[in-house]
Design a protein around this nucleic acid. Structure first.
Lengths: 328, 328
DNA sequence: AGGTATTTTGCATACGTATGCAAAATGAAA
DNA sequence: TTTCATTTTGCATACGTATGCAAAATACCT
């Protein structure tokens, strides 16, 4: 806003045409070194900055990525945000940020991003409604679902290997001697929670073990309250797999408050490996989601689709690993 | 990208001019109800969406706010981000997000925001270099420093009442019986850390008490390591004021690891009242930064400056309050 | 019905930039 | 120096929209 030095002003001062000024700022365009220098000197003197809107109007492209993030307060996601921002910055892309609390993205948020002609969209931990899905597929704007997948593979999604990971966690708890386990789920109907439950229960069932499932909401308070509820039932499991770390920390705190020894009486495993999981107070055993790899996968796909849209879709799973600490 | 239905297409289908189509989408413009309905029906049929770039090119305005955020991993800032996003969304503004690790904002980040002609800029917990400052003042883009102030009041800043708060914390620790206290500072040269130290030391000195200052970096690890260092010196203070909560949690964990009883032997006070401070495991006494009020103050100023730029500057302080928990 | 005031509409243009295309300039070889 | 190939440049235009202004339409009053 307010700086109205144009390419025409620069051209006049440099003694060249507006086209030449434009060419100086357009990568790969044909412009002589002499002209380039004249333009740069003039531009600097006048404080010229190219107008991105005029550019985008002509090119029908932007260097903006829409990032729709649910649950920014879960410490997993600020780290994700940070890595996306840094990676896209290196590629010359900016982030148009939307925060949401909804499991399903609002049409108005998508409309906003579309109005700004974003080059691509990333949605973390949320899905799209049916009509928004249809609109999107028609639009040919590349989209990645991050930490959420859709079963019919309508879009490209990047997740940790939730199913496999949860099987391994179940096996690990069994190996550690657990015989009566519980699973504390996140928000209902999220692919992450469903897969984590599925993997876990398949192993538990295969071993003919008792199993209790509780539903919570991916928050510390949710984990804490659910654990208080479990304790009130007087049937304390000897192993609890919690669908994410922030919830698991609430579980740990509730168990401790009730003088339940961890891991001697009850073992706790989280999922994410957020920063707090490694704090000495918690020392949580958890499955690490490989953020860097997941971000990389997402960015690679988006960049490829931006360069040449193919509409290719896939559910990509990136392998994480079990981080064993003191809760097991 | 890619949706090339224009106002001209809609106009043709609706049997009106492109101007009339434009007027339907421009608040307050003169357009009859009959024309409006014809346009809306046609627009819906064609899937028209106004092109924000063409608009901004004409109006020389956007509905984008640039938000430059340092240290997104400190749980204080995701909450700030969430509240800014929600508040600006209600006002029809979008967020162009920049994450930085630098104490001083990079010129390239500001250039990017300026190229997108943002309506205003918010910078959290970081300052501007001298030449960027000059550029900015000339640009007439409204700017707010959030949780950072500059002594010569070149910009509008919104902070918690750090000085006053720290005095009260010192008084509180004295009242609680402390006689040998320490202050653990955040990043050097930040106004928040400086003011928190200043307020604290002024009371401590007035009471002729011993005082030790340590410098850390506003991270959990920083707090943890600094405390290990303090403990290694064999002079454990009976009260520690820590410049922010995430650091204070590291302090608490380090004290515990060394079997130092909190608060019996050492009392700990943080600053922020992040979510983790209230967790039963920590139950940290802290000064609550009133995020909602600070966000509100920031948004009100920006909106006023966007409507009519005045260049008004001030260092605004919003009162927080002491939240007493189990560490004191 | 006529006159006046107000509202609505379309025309023409501009916003700042990229780009197709032809002309001009440059470089290299004979 | 001339010829040919390649690079560079400027002209003219378009991108999609908002807006100034005059004309047209509508509303209201006598």
């Amino acid at each position: 806003m307010k700086n109205n030095v144009t390419a025409k002003d620069v051209a006049k001062l440099a003694g060249v045409s507006q086209s030449s000024v434009s060419r100086v700022y357009f990568e790969g365009a044909s412009v002589s070194k002499k002209t380039r220098e004249k333009v740069i000197v003039a531009a600097k003197e006048l404080g010229y900055r190219p107008n991105e809107f005029a550019r985008s109007l002509i090119t029908n492209r932007t260097k903006i990525i829409g990032l729709v993030m649910k649950g920014i307060q879960n410490p997993f996601y600020p780290q994700v945000l940070k890595e996306f921002t840094a990676t896209f910055k290196k590629l010359g892309y900016s982030i148009l940020f939307v925060s949401t609390n909804n499991d399903e993205i609002q049409k108005e948020d998508i409309d906003m991003l579309r109005n700004y002609n974003v080059a691509g969209v990333i949605i973390t931990d949320a899905s799209l409604s049916l009509n928004v899905t249809e609109d999107f597929k028609e639009s040919q704007v590349p989209l990645v679902l991050f930490n959420r997948k859709i079963d019919n593979e309508q879009f490209y999604s990047v997740c940790c290997n939730n199913l496999d990971a949860s099987e391994k966690i179940a096996e690990y708890l069994i190996e550690k001697g657990c015989s009566d386990v519980a699973y504390i789920a996140g928000n209902a109907n999220t692919s992450t929670s469903r897969d984590r439950e599925k993997g876990f229960t398949s192993i538990i069932e295969k071993n003919n073990m008792p199993f209790h499932k509780y539903t919570s909401d991916y928050t510390y308070e949710g984990g804490y309250k659910t654990t208080q509820k479990i304790i009130a039932e007087k049937k304390i499991p000897d192993g609890i797999f919690v669908a994410n770390d922030i919830m698991a920390l609430g579980v740990v705190d509730a168990l401790r408050e009730n003088s339940i020894m961890i891991p001697a009486e009850t073992k706790v495993v989280g999922f994410d490996n957020i920063e707090m999981a490694s704090w000495p107070t918690y020392n949580l055993t958890t499955w690490e989601q490989p953020i860097t790899k997941m971000v990389e996968q997402t960015v690679n796909y988006l960049m490829a689709e931006i360069v040449e849209f193919s509409g290719y879709t896939e559910n990509v799973e990136v392998n994480g690993e079990l981080i064993v600490r003191k809760t097991t």
